[in-house]
């Protein structure tokens, strides 16, 4: 029986693969649910309750002593603190009054209070052996050399990026890498896309998409790497680089990441490498957990087998050609 190729098994397999690869675009497994709020001392929660009564939602109520009635008012959105986020963040064991004046417990707040001095990371963590592994001193040194510090030394504090009420460790966690990327990039985009926050420091306007027009597969890069992968200088002691580079010094050479000795292994995937993710024949398997990076995630077995087969073919051809000539 004669079989036209159009109906051969080869075509069927190719079509099957086509449908497997391009069938309805599914979403990645949804991020793990937010970590369960650990048991916080009830006392802290009770103490903070007085603040969250007003600052925990969009609306607050107070008793107007002048005309003796309850008044509903809208809270300034910039002063709303989500208590669920707060009690999941790094400083969840803190009372509000640990950082803010206890005088805030009085309403209406004294106008002078806005002049209060707020401590920064180094005020608590400098020289603290309990936090040695975070290398706060090195972070401070690196930050001092960064573009942010150069331009806005006096006003640019840790809190500009690490919101005191919501900041939590991400890179140093077992969170899915996609979540780490989204979280960390949101820190940068908070200013570089959000004009409101940026206006505190500068009148500049950024167009992230236009500035990155040169970047191939822009969306894929934005989804799979953090801004700091290209916009910071690595420091071996730090898990997350804090020396943000001027725009012109950013990494622009594709091959810095797209190679077996990928820059990503010293930054985004450093924590996973430190925790020795199992290799299964790939270069940079920790990257492969979430992304395929051409040039960086290669399968040694496949490459070796292919090179061996290639050599066998070349030797075979050489022998065959020699026999044809000499026999």
């Amino acid at each position: 029986m004669s079989i036209p190729i159009a109906s051969s098994k080869g075509c069927f397999l190719a079509l099957s693969i086509f449908f497997i690869i391009f069938s309805a675009h599914s979403q990645t497994t949804s991020p793990e649910e937010a970590q369960e709020i650990k048991e916080i001392e009830q006392e802290v929660i009770d103490d903070n309750g007085i603040c969250f009564n007003c600052h925990g939602g969009k609306k607050y109520t107070y008793f107007n002593t002048w005309d003796e009635r309850d008044v509903n008012a809208l809270m300034n959105p910039y002063y709303v603190i989500d208590s669920l986020v707060y009690y999941d963040a790094n400083h969840k064991t803190f009372r509000c009054s640990d950082c803010h004046s206890p005088d805030y417990e009085t309403f209406p707040h004294d106008g002078e209070l806005r002049m209060e001095w707020i401590s920064t990371c180094m005020d608590c963590h400098e020289g603290d052996d309990d936090y040695k592994k975070y290398h706060f001193e090195t972070i401070q040194e690196e930050f001092a050399k960064s573009a942010h510090s150069d331009k806005y030394d006096d006003v640019f504090t840790c809190w500009m990026c690490h919101d005191a009420h919501s900041y939590k460790l991400n890179a140093r966690s077992e969170l899915p890498i996609e979540d780490v990327i989204v979280y960390d990039n949101a820190i940068c985009l908070g200013c570089h896309v959000g004009a409101d926050r940026l206006s505190l420091l500068s009148d500049k306007e950024f167009d992230i998409l236009e500035d990155h027009e040169w970047l191939p597969n822009q969306r894929l890069h934005f989804q799979n790497v953090r801004c700091i992968e290209c916009h910071s200088e690595l420091n071996d002691s730090l898990l997350v680089a804090h020396k943000i580079l001027p725009k012109d010094d950013a990494v622009k050479k594709c091959v810095e990441c797209h190679t077996t000795n990928s820059l990503l292994t010293a930054s985004l995937y450093k924590f996973r490498l430190m925790n020795k993710y199992k290799p299964y024949g790939f270069s940079n398997p920790e990257i492969l957990e979430v992304a395929y990076v051409i040039g960086a995630t290669r399968n040694y077995f496949l490459d070796t087998i292919s090179i061996v087969v290639f050599l066998i073919i070349m030797v075979g051809i050489l022998i065959h050609a020699s026999l044809r000539i000499f026999l």
């Binding site: 969306r219 492969l288 957990e289 395929y292």
Partner: peptide, 20 residues
């Protein structure tokens, strides 16, 4: 890459596509 299924049998879709 946006049109490739993210996960195929718990494996990164792009990685499988690239291996093929």
């Amino acid at each position: 890459p946006g049109i490739v299924v993210n996960q195929i049998f718990e494996t990164n879709g792009l990685y499988l596509t690239n291996i093929f």
